[in-house]
């Protein structure tokens, strides 16, 4: 039972991350490789506010979201001045810089040793410290995020994100500034990633920089690509797929010494297969050209 609850919580964290990524890559055509950076910054800021400033979880999370919004400016800047591949490369560089900061700014992040003893969230005296209670809590958070994106999907705003993705010149010829919509997509996406980071921090009670590297960014992109760009259920399916797959592989009994590598290879092969035979992913509505 505990095993399944654990998997559920991990799935939920990735569902949030994939949904946030989908708003960028799937809706707005922005293939950002820095999602893990915002996931990580969100986790660190919440963890620091919880452990150092002694704030409640909701206030810490709010702080992390605000911090992520502010620190989104490099991505917004890249998006307004660079296109497609150049944007992806710039975000890749930014991801590497953030990783390096998390590893090396010892005074704040405690470097590779990470931050320990992050307290569990609570509500009016009740602390979600048992696994079932935490799972309910994280499900509630995930459900809210999911509903937020479903709601967003129905707005005229989301139509503009899609318009920017399809044809920026046409958007301009109808009086709409592409950079305005890209900026908002980026802000929403980094804000939501902070929620995933906060959940991760309080669930594991411990964070270190190794969870927020470029590999993680690529994993999140794979989830969205395999699930299908631009489709909310695609992001959910992609996250479930990538979290559950290794659990399934576990039953095949690959020796521990090579398990990690085999897993990465299987990820890669699956991604190649999907790109070749199902360019729209499971549920996608759009594919990069």
């Amino acid at each position: 039972m505990n095993y399944f609850l654990h998997i559920l919580i991990v799935c939920e964290i990735y569902i949030i991350l994939a949904l946030a990524m989908n708003l960028l890559a799937g809706y707005s055509g922005l293939l950002s490789l820095a999602q893990a950076a915002y996931y990580g910054i969100g986790a660190y800021v919440s963890a620091l506010l919880l452990t150092q400033a002694g704030l409640s979880f909701s206030l810490s999370l709010l702080g992390a979201i605000c911090f992520n919004l502010i620190i989104s400016f490099p991505i917004i800047w890249f998006a307004s001045s660079l296109r497609d591949l150049y944007f992806a490369i710039a975000t890749l560089a930014w991801q590497i810089i953030v990783s390096a900061i998390l590893y090396n700014w010892q005074a704040v992040t405690n470097g590779p040793f990470g931050i320990m003893g992050i307290p569990k969230p609570g509500f009016g005296g009740f602390v979600f410290d048992s696994l079932p209670s935490f799972a309910s809590f994280s499900s509630l958070v995930t459900l809210s995020v999911l509903l937020f994106f479903i709601g967003l999907h129905r707005t005229p705003l989301s139509r503009c994100f899609l318009g920017v993705r399809d044809d920026q010149l046409a958007m301009m010829s109808f009086g709409k500034k592409p950079s305005y919509f890209k900026s908002w997509a980026i802000l929403i996406s980094s804000g939501v990633s902070a929620i995933a980071g906060g959940l991760f921090a309080v669930y594991f009670s411990y964070i270190d920089p190794s969870s927020f590297t470029l590999d993680e960014s690529i994993l999140i992109i794979c989830m969205v690509l395999v699930g299908g760009l631009g489709a909310i259920r695609g992001s959910v399916a992609g996250a479930l797929f990538y979290v559950l797959l290794p659990e399934v592989l576990r039953f095949i009994h690959i020796p521990d010494s090579i398990a990690a590598n085999v897993r990465m290879m299987i990820y890669a092969v699956l991604l190649i297969l999907v790109v070749m035979y199902r360019p729209y992913g499971f549920f996608g509505k759009y594919t990069f050209e």
């Binding site: 318009g163 399809d166 044809d167 046409a170 631009g230």
Partner: peptide, 9 residues
């Protein structure tokens, strides 16, 4: 001249 429509919409 070559119509620019939002192809996926």
């Amino acid at each position: 001249q070559f119509p620019r429509v939002f192809k996926n919409l």
